[in-house]
């Protein structure tokens, strides 16, 4: 890839990011990306405080902060094609002699970085409000866990986004997936309490292992187990990206055959 190509990649990423959420206005960004995630985090942590009758809310602060990345990774990346359809540019993207997956990936790239800021805000607010201390842990490892979590959820977002070529109900799909992530990744209750059949779904989801690894790190758990969970989470992310790539080829074919590129 030439320098011009790399530059175009980042320019496209940035423009798509700005256009998707209309973040030219700082007020919109503040409400959608700062205030709303904070309230989501506070709600689930307070619920845990009351239902589990505990004052140590470390696992819930970590789990629910990680989950805040769904605003970017699921709703942001998942809506890339839908927003292009509304802007009237989807036909041009499909017709362009350029790798669709790369186009798609460049549009989601800034979301991955931005989701880290939301997660960081969640962790900072959560640690202040609920007295969670990060002083006794290895911060670089914690950052690696967070990065790996964002990567694997972005993989799921890429997979979901591919469906945007054949359906106009992406909001419905994104909402279901985000709720499933809140329920089944172990952020709010131990996944061991779920029936076996549902537990399999939990292990197939991104973030499950990252939350477990971060909680182990906070509790001084085995480094080997933590590293093994990180590697498994990376693998989950790669699988989702591969599936996303495959599904874009399939859905592009279906969209052309069924003429759903302009399905509103």
């Amino acid at each position: 890839m030439s320098f011009e190509g790399i530059e175009r990649f980042f320019v496209q990423s940035w423009l798509s990011f700005k256009a998707l959420f209309g973040w030219i206005e700082p007020k919109t960004y503040f409400f959608v990306k700062v205030l709303n995630p904070i309230f989501q985090l506070l709600f689930f942590c307070l619920l845990a405080k009351y239902s589990f009758k505990t004052n140590d809310l470390t696992p819930w602060v970590i789990g629910n902060s990680f989950l805040l990345c769904i605003y970017n990774s699921i709703f942001g990346i998942g809506h890339v094609f839908v927003m292009d359809r509304y802007a009237g540019t989807l036909k041009m993207i499909i017709a362009a002699p350029f790798n669709k997956f790369l186009t798609f990936f460049q549009r989601g790239f800034v979301h991955i970085i931005d989701s880290l800021s939301t997660v960081a805000i969640g962790l900072i607010i959560g640690s202040i409000v609920f007295n969670v201390s990060f002083s006794n842990i290895s911060i670089p490892i914690f950052i690696i866990i967070a990065l790996v979590a964002m990567f694997s959820v972005a993989g799921l977002g890429l997979l979901l986004g591919s469906f945007g070529l054949v359906t106009s109900s992406m909001n419905f799909i994104a909402n279901i997936v985000s709720m499933i992530l809140i329920a089944l990744t172990g952020a709010n209750f131990p996944i061991e309490t779920l029936p076996n059949s549902i537990r399999i779904i939990s292990y197939c989801l991104p973030i499950t292992r990252s939350i477990k690894a971060a909680n182990l790190l906070m509790n001084g758990g085995s480094t080997q187990v933590i590293y093994s969970l990180i590697v498994k989470e990376i693998f989950v992310g790669i699988v989702y990206i591969a599936l996303g790539y495959m599904f874009i080829i399939i859905t592009e074919h279906i969209a052309k055959r069924k003429a759903t590129l302009e399905l509103y």
């Binding site: 619920l47 239902s51 109900s169 909001n171 419905f172 279901i176 709720m179 809140i182 709010n188 209750f189």
Partner: peptide
Amino acid sequence: PTFRFCLLIQPIIYSLITYKMF
């Protein structure tokens, strides 16, 4: 679709979360 989600899917998932937490 969003209303259908609120009406049909959300209560099931919220029930699961709150049941397991309580």
